Amino acid sequence: MKKILVASTALVAAGMITAGSASASEKIKLGLGGYSKWWVVGAWQDDSFEAGINNATAGQGSANSVDVKGDNEIWFSGSTKLDNGLEVGINIELEAGGNTDSTNTTGDQIDKSYVYISGGFGKVIVGTESNGTVLMHTMAPDAAGNTGADGILTGGLAIARPSAVTSKVTTEIDTDAEAEKITYVAPSFYGFTVGGSYIPNATEDNQNVWGTGTPGTANQAAEIYGVAAMYAGKVFDVGVKASAGYVTYDIAAATDRSQEWSLGTQLSYAGFTLGGSYRDIKDNMGSAPVAGGAGGVASNDGYAWDIGLMYETGPYAISFTYFNSVAEGLVANGQDEVTVYQVSGKYNMGAGVDLLATVGHAEYDDESAKTTNADANHNEGWSVMTGLSLQF
């Protein structure tokens, strides 16, 4: 894998060197963009869970019935075209309050920051952008864009997610999150494109690939390599989007290199879009002992999948989405599980202004809750929410 990436990088570098003069008429000027999204959320969840966390010492806190959740970013971006035809650009994304990203383990105010060079050879991205498998990944459609790690229900932001549940909340291979990396994306050829990423280490914004470790500990991924492919086009009158991704990485104490792969597709016709995706995780931890001497198997081996159907007409869109994720966790012969299903709607009020709504159910099960009936490790409930999304 490393030889392939090194060879690809060398070819790109050679293309840049032979492209001719690299002068530009003026410096890059940054422009503003971004979005602001706010939700008013109502939630009804297990009384036994609330009683359990109030009696526990894990510090999970109480669960509110009504809350306000926001997700806001300001983008600073700009580019220039050099005399040799190469485009050079920069993008910086500032978290602007109300951050709903429950997976961010460092609290960074700058979400992403990267530079890129693009030309006939494709595009090279260096910095804290998502890896190539995430950039190309296709998931189940949701009218309100309310799924994945930043989704209100899937992210555990409406129905509280017990801290012991280790199952993933997205089919994207986001193991490295926005760690520093280099990514290459090839030019599109008849709708097909391929790409890859190399991440030396993922202590920055790492997604805790197994256990409950913190960034920089032995529980984190390192030497991450990823490759991806994507197709977007039409077959007869049917719109087709499809993706595939593969990532491999090292974990201290693992018996072999860990690996993840994903697949996704969407089919669109006459306003309808049917789609789904799958993620498989093999962390190869073998029989590593659990911290604290519990004697179980520490592993995030498992899978996540989703499926959804959306219909759009004029300014309206409505969808139904189902998500399920399973992980082995810390107890032998047990599994953690997350299940979410929801109906979402969107009404476009004008350019960049959308009224959003979601109604759904989420259930979280830790393996210990199944064997000991521990109320603090199981929760489920319904949520109703409405939101306003502004893009600028």
Score class of each variant (00 low, 15 high):
G15H: 08
S25C: 00
W44F: 13
I53F: 00
F76W: 13
S79D: 15
K81A: 11
N84F: 12
E93M: 09
K112E: 15
Y116I: 01
S118L: 07
S118Q: 14
G119A: 06
K123L: 03
I125Y: 09
N131M: 08
L135N: 10
M136K: 02
M136T: 02
T138N: 01
A149C: 03
G155S: 05
L157D: 09
A160G: 05
R161D: 11
D176E: 14
I182D: 09
F192V: 06
G195T: 12
I199G: 08
N201C: 05
Q207P: 02
A218S: 13
Y225H: 11
Y231P: 04
A232K: 13
V235P: 04
F236Y: 13
V238E: 11
Y246C: 07
Y246V: 10
A253S: 14
D256I: 01
S262V: 05
G271F: 09
G276Q: 08
R279T: 04
I307D: 01
Y316T: 03
Y316R: 00
Y322I: 02
V331T: 10
E337Q: 15
V338H: 09
Q342D: 13
S344N: 09
G352N: 12
G352I: 14
T358I: 10
S368W: 03
S368R: 09
K370P: 02
K370D: 13
T386W: 00
